[in-house]
Write a protein that binds this DNA or RNA. Structure first.
Lengths: 197, 197, 197, 197
DNA sequence: TATGAATGAGACTTCATTCAT
DNA sequence: TATGAATGAAGTCTCATTCAT
């Protein structure tokens, strides 16, 4: 459980990189900036990270490994309550967590752009992003499947409904931070209820 | 109607900038790149544009001036058809146009990030983006208001419905380009129909 | 007496150039700056002035043509008053005039540096500067010669006295503008009186 | 006592900068020029100096730290000889040293101009220059005070005399280098003797 | 593990100047 | 007389990266 000094330093590098990548952008975050913030020298960074491209990739993995349906919607809780409440609650939790680490949203968007632009050179970025989003669609679809088995909803359009939910949940916070006076949680609750009509 | 040589050159600069900004990102698009593509020299660019920051701003305005509800949903057409068909049709047109100029999507996303990061220095970016999105929400809300007057929908949740439509339409294409096998037009039709339930 | 439009424009160019050369330095004064201040375009400037080097030379001549002993010490007045009072009065006038066009001092100093650095390429600058300073030394020497003929001072060291006066008068204002709390006129009066001891 | 390699390089940068600043002027001395002369690359310079402005400031401090009354007039020597001889001797030493590092004079003048033009942005330049000049005035005044206590001169005009000496000494070499056939040492001796009349 | 020192490539920008109109 | 358009050269500065210690 305890980290070695090296692991600690590595973790700090990731944290600081995430912070600056999100705040200023990947391109505007130089090794100097990171090194200064960590009170290290640039060459020391190279001990932990082979190149900037590798750092970007490591940060990317670190971020997207946590960005999946299962991280927010815990399946064990599903039986304890109604499906509708479960979906609403999970979404609210998602919204809250994203809200807390506000600047991460920027990073998710930046990485998506980054991944698209890297697609020719390195497909792994896009693949991981796809998987993340797919996990939400699939996750919602499974829940809906179950709901249908319980006769809570009609059989129709399960995929479209799942896609709607995934897309809404994914962008609701981005929209919120634009400052259009939108109530994220209310909109999510509304979305779920519409799906269950 | 005809452009002077200077205006033509200026327009070409905008076009090429848009192309590279979208394809490679603002930061990775240097004046050299633009100048080379136009077979001009770097200093010539400065005859048309005071600085890179100004070029970014000009491109930004050029893009976002066209990104509004009214540009896609022509109000004159509203009376010629049913409201539901009108909304579906307008959305399909929106989706088609975005699809044609595919890379513009990247630019919209990049500019949104750019605007957030510039907010302290220059609020005008964010303001314009807000206006764009607001125009969609307000546009949909007005249509729904009318629908309600004709008793086509219930009075409830007009704002939430409008927000849902705006958010869905705005991100449907981004999602599509991720390659999750989503049918944009079908999803939009479904969205509109849900709203009219 | 009246100037043609062309002459007027030319004069304005000189005036503006003097202003910027003095305020910001020759090197930091670009043709753009001058053109903007005059609401002209750069190529128009080239109609009046062949190159920046020529502009510098013209301004230089314009400034140093007026910087001579005779411009400040009018020989006709010499007989009307005592020699000592004449010298003090002339110096005070010099000081006042320099004080009025304060920034000209910067230009004189900058041109002196410029002249030294150009000496290998173009000796005319240094020659003109030498002549200016020599005119003061010679001017004072002639006055002192006359004073000696009237037995007001001893024969000795006439050149040294003249050099002292020239050097003091020439630098008294530069010193003053440093803000060392020096009273220029009092110091000049003191200098003259010392010479007449 | 020995310098590390870094310190040596830094010192070389200062030396070369001084040389070029004096010979060609601050503005005409580019980092390329300095780097070439040192057989370094431009970015290497930035390892030692954050910006050109910082380099200018460092050179300025380096020069003006040595330019004070105490650096040329050693107070211990005062008792060993007569005051008049002491002042003449100190001045001659000053003149000789300035003559040896001839181009430094240009630099002093250039820095004075630079300081005036920077006054709004950064007062420290002007303050240091003032202090230098003030040190000469105060230094001379103290000597004269002492002379007066020994009844060597009259009580009157001690400040004016000190100012005269400071101003003369400060500019005598500038004048000399104009090539007006002035004998600097003789003029200084004359100045001191006049003061002691 | 860490650092001092260095570098090639390339970024944005300004300048003096030209030329056809 | 004046201007719109363009350019080669050069300037300040940043960046990712390397290497010997």
């Amino acid at each position: 459980m305890t980290m070695s000094k090296g692991e600690e330093t590595y973790q700090k590098i990731l944290d600081v990189s995430i912070y600056f990548f999100a705040k200023d952008g990947i391109h505007k975050t130089s090794f100097s900036k990171i090194a200064d913030a960590l009170k290290m020298t640039k060459p020391s960074l190279y001990y932990y990270v082979k190149s900037k491209e590798e750092l970007v990739h490591k940060v990317f993995d670190y971020i997207f490994d946590d960005y999946s349906f299962d991280a927010y919607f815990e399946k064990e809780k599903l039986t304890q309550t109604t499906i509708e409440a479960y979906l609403i609650g999970g979404g609210h939790q998602f919204i809250e967590e994203i809200e807390e680490q506000n600047i991460i949203l920027n990073l998710l968007n930046e990485f998506t752009l980054y991944a698209k632009r890297m697609e020719e050179k390195d497909e792994t970025y896009m693949e991981k992003i796809k998987q993340s989003h797919q996990s939400f669609i699939t996750g919602f679809a499974q829940i809906l499947q179950q709901a249908e088995e319980f006769d809570l909803i009609k059989e129709e359009h399960i995929i479209l409904r799942a896609q709607t939910m995934a897309l809404m949940l994914d962008n609701i916070q981005s929209y919120h931070t634009l400052g259009l006076g939108m109530d994220s949680k209310e909109l999510w609750s509304f979305t779920v209820r519409q799906v269950f009509v």
